[in-house]
Every structure is written in C-alpha cells, then in structure tokens.
Design a binder for these strands. Structure first.
Length: 280
DNA sequence: ACGCGTGCCTGTTGGC
DNA sequence: TGCCAACAGGCACGCG
C-alpha cells in the first residue's frame, strides 16, 4: 500500500531509469486501468519522450513531451498493489500487468519496457494535458504536501475537522499523501488517541502531531519506504522502514515505550493499532 | 454540507 | 491437510 514515502521512492528510482527515454508504443492488457485520456494514450503518446517523473500526494506522475504538443502527463494512482517494473524489451508481461510501455531511443531501438502491474486492479492511469487538471476534482481538492507545509498550518487544517483525528489525517483534502501506516505511526509519537476528536485537541498537541508526521515521513523516505506484502520500488528493491514500525502491524505486541499490550480498533473504517496507555 | 458506511478487487492468512 | 471466511485499504459513492 504505497503512501507518500513509498511513492516518492518509486518516483526517484523510476526517474533514474526512464528519464529521456522515448515511448514507442503503449498498450493495455487490462483496459479498465486507464481512467481518462484514452485518445491521447493511443494517439499522442507514441513518440513522446519522458521529461520527468515526480510525485504529488500518493500520485506518481510521468510528464512526457509528445511530438506535436508541449506536454502530456501520465498520472498513476497505485492504490494498494500497483507497482512499476522496468524490463528488457524481450520480457513477457504476466497476468497482473495492466499497462505496458515500450521504449526506444536513437541509440538503441529496443531500450526496454515498463510494466504497470496491479494485482487488485484498484490502481489507475490518466493521460492528462495541462488543461485537463483543473477539471479533475480529486486533483484540485488535494490538500498540501505535509513535507512542504509549516506545522502550525497543518495543525490548523486538522483542527477544523469534526471527526476523529485519524480520519482527519487520512483525508486527502486536509493533508495529502497519508495512509494507514503513517497515520498510526505519527499518532503514536504524538501520544494522541486515534479516536480523539480532532477539533477538541489542544492546538499545541496538533503541532506536535504535524512534527511527528514529518519525522516519520522523512525517516521512511530515507529508508526507501515500508515493504509490507509486495511493495517494491522500480528497481525491484524493498524498503526498510517496516523494521521501525512502533504500532502499525504490531497488534497484540508490547508498546515500545511502556510495555503494555498494543490495542486494536476500527477507526475511520481502518484497522488501527495504538497504545491505550500512551495515547490519550 | 459534512461525516460515515459500503463496494470495488484478489492474494494471503487463520480458524476449524 | 484442506477449505473458506475474514482481512488488507484508498477512494468513489450514497445515505443520513
């Protein structure tokens, strides 16, 4: 389940592999994975060169320069099981491959191919012109990047939410890029109970939460993300932050601070692990 | 208007 | 050992 640190890691490793390559052709073993821009995907993409690969929220964006247009961007949401695999041109795709991009360049006609694989098919791609972004509601309503926003501003946005603080952290309109792992981890380090009502928490505690969130995100990025289940970066490598989890996935184990057994509850519809002794 | 519950998906896990 | 329900969870959607 790639969240901000995992998508950031994928973007960095993918950028190193495909920047400046030219897309010779693209096709869809599973057509439902393309949610928008079918015409551009089929007609504009062939011949386009890859300008840059970057991340916004949990979205991975591949900006290309088509032959006759200034810019066409492939926007991917990996959801839980989406991943990218770079292979030699001879590699056959498998039953979980949803989108295939074949590359070429002037030096080497067959310079490899990129697979978008996604076991559960929740992930998607959109082929977007610059003018398409303002009419995409999910994009326009995304909240700020947590690593580029002052703690006090994040705290203020969280404080305006009427529901639980965990629901606020998961709400992409309040702050972008947070999923179940980093919501639980940041709440633990801020000593805040996941079910606490966001708007009733003291502002200073929300500032601490924002700082905790930034710290866990930065540490995870430094460790190339968390590899649980089948997450891999675009090199096929695992991250290491799962070895540093304080609460996520540790239901029933001992709290690293006080030694009490960690609690489990469903909060905001998600499995949530927390220490009922340390988090109030 | 806002917050919450459900459905979409399939591989993995755990209980009997 | 084998079967199958429960589970994983981001987001669109419908409801209250």
């Amino acid at each position: 389940m790639p969240e901000l640190p995992e998508v950031e890691t994928i973007a960095r490793t993918l950028a190193a592999q495909i920047t400046n390559k030219v897309i010779a052709r693209a096709f869809l073993p599973y057509p439902k994975s393309l949610h928008a821009g079918h015409r551009h995907f089929a007609e504009t993409l062939p011949g386009a060169s890859i300008l840059r690969v970057f991340r916004r929220a949990k979205l991975l964006l591949i900006e290309t320069k088509p032959v006759e247009l200034a810019s066409l961007t492939l926007v991917f949401h990996l959801k839980m099981t989406g991943c990218f695999l770079v292979h030699p041109a001879t590699k056959e795709y498998d039953k979980h491959t949803r989108i295939v991009f074949d590359f070429t360049d002037s030096a080497d006609f067959s310079s490899g191919r990129l697979f978008f694989n996604d076991v559960r098919t929740f992930g998607y791609c959109r082929a977007m012109l610059p003018e398409d972004f303002p009419s995409w509601p999910f994009w326009t309503s995304l909240g700020p990047e947590p690593l580029e926003t002052p703690d006090e501003e994040l705290a203020g946005r969280l404080a305006r939410h009427r529901g639980s603080i965990k629901a606020a952290l998961l709400n992409q309109e309040i702050v972008a890029g947070i999923g179940n792992i980093y919501a639980d981890e940041s709440l633990f380090y801020a000593n805040i109970a996941p079910k606490a009502q966001a708007s009733r928490l003291e502002f200073s505690r929300l500032v601490v939460l924002a700082a905790s969130l930034r710290r866990v995100l930065l540490q995870s990025i430094a460790e190339c993300g968390s590899s649980i289940r089948n997450y891999r970066d675009a090199n096929g490598d695992t991250g290491a932050f799962q070895n540093s989890f304080a609460v996520y996935g540790r239901r029933g184990a001992a709290c690293i601070t006080c030694g009490e057994i960690l609690s489990f509850a469903r909060v905001a519809g998600r499995g949530t692990v927390f220490c009922s002794h340390c988090q109030r």
